[in-house]
Design a protein around this nucleic acid. Structure first.
Length: 271
DNA sequence: CGAACCTCCTGCGGGC
DNA sequence: TGCCCGCAGGAGGTTC
């Protein structure tokens, strides 16, 4: 389940294989992902990848004429092959780089998406335009969270998973950040003090940057997103650990569904 | 605008 | 051992 750290790790792994290089050939074997794969992808042969960027969980492939916006969904991953193997069932798209590797996109659940934004400003695409700040940006802080949360009665866990509030916080890191901040996931977002929102913003930042760091250091062939918590798994404090002792106080971690999502928290440490 | 709920899809785990 | 059911999950879409 690629969350922001996994997408950033993918970007760092993929960038050296594609940036500044021309596309030799594209093959789309299955075009029905979350939405139909942008037809422009098929016409990129000969075009040079000017940069590989990231906004939220979107990878942005910049070309002169426009940009591909690529989302990994829940189960999408890229892999670069020196000598390509025969494509398997879920290997939906190949991008051959001139004098380079074959970049292969695999996505069993097909929640991924490939969109096209013409022109120079990929961030003008409607899917990106309404997004909140990046969690590692300086304009994301406790005051921002505090302002955005006024009047909101929904649980804070749903609040920080709202991409208009802050991007890139999925179910796993939401649980981890709330644990680190000592905030109960069910607490109404609008009833949390400014000081505690500052703590939460810091916890989100710390949790995500730590995960990126771990992803970066354990990077091998940059494949990510195979449906497991992955390399950050060993660092998880509460996610997936309901019924086990709290790593801080030893009390039994509780689990429940909040906002349609499985959540874990410590009833003692989180208020 | 906010909130609750539904949807897409497949692999896998639990239960029997 | 094998089968079936239902869950998991990002995020857009719908409805109230």
């Amino acid at each position: 389940m690629p969350e922001l750290p996994e997408v950033e790790t993918t970007r760092r792994g993929l960038a050296p294989l594609v940036e500044g290089r021309a596309i030799a050939r594209v093959e789309v074997r299955r075009s029905r992902l979350r939405w139909p794969v942008a037809p422009e992808l098929d016409q990129l042969a000969g075009e040079t990848v000017r940069a590989l960027e990231r906004r939220a969980k979107w990878l942005i492939w910049r070309f002169d004429r426009g940009s591909l916006l690529w989302h990994l969904g829940m189960s999408g991953s890229f892999r670069g092959w020196e000598r390509p193997a025969t494509p398997e069932k879920h290997d939906h798209i190949d991008i051959a780089v001139r004098d380079g590797r074959l970049i292969r996109y695999t996505d069993p659940r097909r929640f991924g998406a490939v969109l096209w934004q013409p022109g120079r400003d990929p961030r003008a695409h409607p899917r990106l335009a309404g997004l909140g700040p990046e969690p590692l940006d300086e304009n994301f802080d406790g005051d921002w969270l505090w302002r955005r949360s006024r009047g909101r009665r929904a649980p804070v866990k749903q609040f920080i998973m709202d991409g208009a509030v802050v991007v890139g916080v999925g179910n796993i890191y939401a649980a981890e950040a709330l644990f680190a901040a000592g905030i109960h996931p069910r607490r109404a977002a609008g009833r949390i003090s400014r000081a505690r929102h500052a703590r939460l913003a810091g916890a989100v930042r710390e949790t995500l940057s730590r995960a990126i760091e771990v992803g970066g250091t354990s990077l091998r062939d940059f494949t990510v997103g195979d449906g497991t918590p992955g390399y950050f798994g060993q660092e998880l404090k509460v996610y997936g650990k309901a019924g086990q002792p709290c790593p801080a106080c030893g009390r039994t971690l509780k689990g429940a569904v909040i906002g349609q999502r499985a959540t874990v928290w410590c009833p003692t440490c989180q208020r």
